[in-house]
Computed example of a mutant assay.
Amino acid sequence: MPHNSHPFSILTPPFIMDAVESQGFVCDCRTLALNSYENRVYQVGIEEGEPLITKFYRPGRWTDDQILEEHRFCVELAGHELPVVAPWRNAAGESLFRHGGFRFALYPRQGGHAPEFDNLDNLLILGRMLGRIHRIGGVRPFEHRPVLDSRSFGHESVALIRDRFIPAEYRESYVAVTDRLLEVIDESLAAAGPVRLIRTHGDCHSGNILWRDDAPHFVDFDDARLAPAVQDLWMMLSGDRPRRIAQLDALLEGYAEFNDFDPRELRLVEPLRALRVLHYSAWLAARWEDPAFPRAFPWFNTPRYWNEQIIELREQLAALAEPPLQLP
């Protein structure tokens, strides 16, 4: 492998099929790369069987214990008949495998399309499912996976951008708005008081939910972590304030059928949104040496991007000054 190539460059079709066949399957020579950047994910055809989804983990991101804890959470949820796509396990109960220096997992293929969050009936169903997921997620904490907090998602993200990426002409504006934003985020989190942290999906956007036969299927728990329950709800809210309140009402109506929701967590919606904006830029920056990122995100780290990013951060600061969402 060339010195300057990325580790993922060795994931050729033969390598991928060899990994799958190391677990006793016979591939039919069909491989299809799926949209995934943090890890690498492929659909692999299996002779006399349904295709499998093969996920190769980014080296150095998670420990084995963290990955296995995610797997156990998914298996636990699936064991309660929840629509979660859990990893395949071999006869010994193993779900994390190794091949050629990579760790990988296998998943059954799940069809479907992104849910329509504008459909309140869909949100009612999603609320029910998340209520059930969170009821199980609250039974015990994660021991190895991280906590969603302002230090890792906010302060460390801003430090990375300031030190390595922000162009000189935008640095002063970026520092000013992020200093104030982090201050307001920390104040908002403190004002909400201690809230319960549970095992969550952590990245519950439309791309990680497959809708089929009038029901959702939750996939990709790679970002699962301890967080307030509202972390898995707020990404489904969009539009003006009345619309977001209607969406929230539908979600929590379904949620309440299976689990209690602490209304204090509504104060966390905009702080969590702000942390996601900060973290997303830092995620792109931290992965910029991966050749897949400049190809997929050519607009990142351009003058236009940083100008628009500063505007977005100022808008988020204004959103934090508004009263939290409240149910009618």
Results as ranks from 00 to 15, higher is better:
252 L>M: 12
252 L>S: 05
252 L>G: 04
252 L>I: 10
253 E>T: 12
256 A>V: 00
258 F>Y: 13
258 F>I: 01
260 D>E: 14
261 F>G: 08
261 F>R: 10
262 D>Q: 07
263 P>E: 15
264 R>A: 14
264 R>P: 06
266 L>Q: 11
267 R>H: 14
268 L>M: 10
269 V>W: 12
269 V>Q: 10
270 E>M: 13
271 P>H: 06
271 P>L: 12
272 L>W: 09
272 L>K: 09
273 R>M: 12
273 R>C: 11
273 R>Q: 15
274 A>R: 01
275 L>S: 06
275 L>I: 09
276 R>D: 06
276 R>K: 14
281 S>L: 07
282 A>T: 10
282 A>N: 04
282 A>F: 05
283 W>S: 04
283 W>F: 10
283 W>D: 04
284 L>S: 00
284 L>H: 00
284 L>I: 07
285 A>M: 00
286 A>T: 01
286 A>D: 13
287 R>K: 05
289 E>Y: 10
290 D>P: 00
290 D>E: 03
291 P>L: 08
291 P>W: 08
293 F>L: 15
293 F>R: 03
293 F>K: 01
295 R>T: 10
295 R>D: 14
296 A>K: 10
296 A>C: 05
297 F>A: 06
297 F>V: 08
299 W>V: 02
299 W>E: 14
299 W>H: 09
302 T>S: 14
302 T>A: 05
302 T>M: 06
